[in-house]
């Protein structure tokens, strides 16, 4: 499809200071595309939270962002440990983050709740020991 754009990012857990590079690049591109500021804000927050989650819990993965005239779809796929209890993970404040991560100001237990709050749809498929795929959409 000609008016569909796809952006791919490899997220690595090797360097924590690089977490957020994908969301920041997407944000820059959306501004150039002239997407409305409110949508940009929601995409940036949802994607950044997801990216951080991939680095902390899943040792990296791949982010694919597709943009059509109707919506932005963000797919975050990892081969991490999986989420044992999605309902619990979705609760605001629930966190499994280790202390070294909390000391950096992360791990407040707002990751998934923030992703949900900022997207129009969110779908999580997860399998213990195999990985997690989160698909979020935001309507334009």
């Amino acid at each position: 499809m000609p008016n569909l754009m796809e952006l791919k990012y490899q997220v690595s857990n090797e360097d924590f200071t690089r977490a957020g590079e994908a969301s920041s690049d997407v944000k820059k591109k959306l501004k150039q595309l002239g997407v409305s500021p409110d949508v940009i804000r929601r995409v940036a927050i949802a994607l950044y939270e997801g990216e951080i989650n991939m680095v902390i819990h899943a040792y990296g993965g791949e982010i694919t962002v597709t943009i059509s005239e109707e919506q932005i779809t963000m797919t975050l796929a990892d081969r991490g440990p999986g989420i044992p209890d999605i309902d619990k993970a979705m609760q605001a404040g629930f966190s499994t983050a280790p202390d070294n991560v909390r000391n950096l100001g992360f791990g407040a237990g707002m990751g998934l709740p923030n992703m949900k709050k900022n997207s129009d749809t969110i779908d999580i498929s997860t399998e213990i020991g195999v990985g997690t795929t989160v698909v979020m959409t935001i309507n334009l």
Partner: peptide
């Protein structure tokens, strides 16, 4: 910094 004034053209 916008590339064009509509999404299709910008993309």
């Amino acid at each position: 910094f916008e590339l064009a004034d509509n999404l299709k053209e910008s993309m």
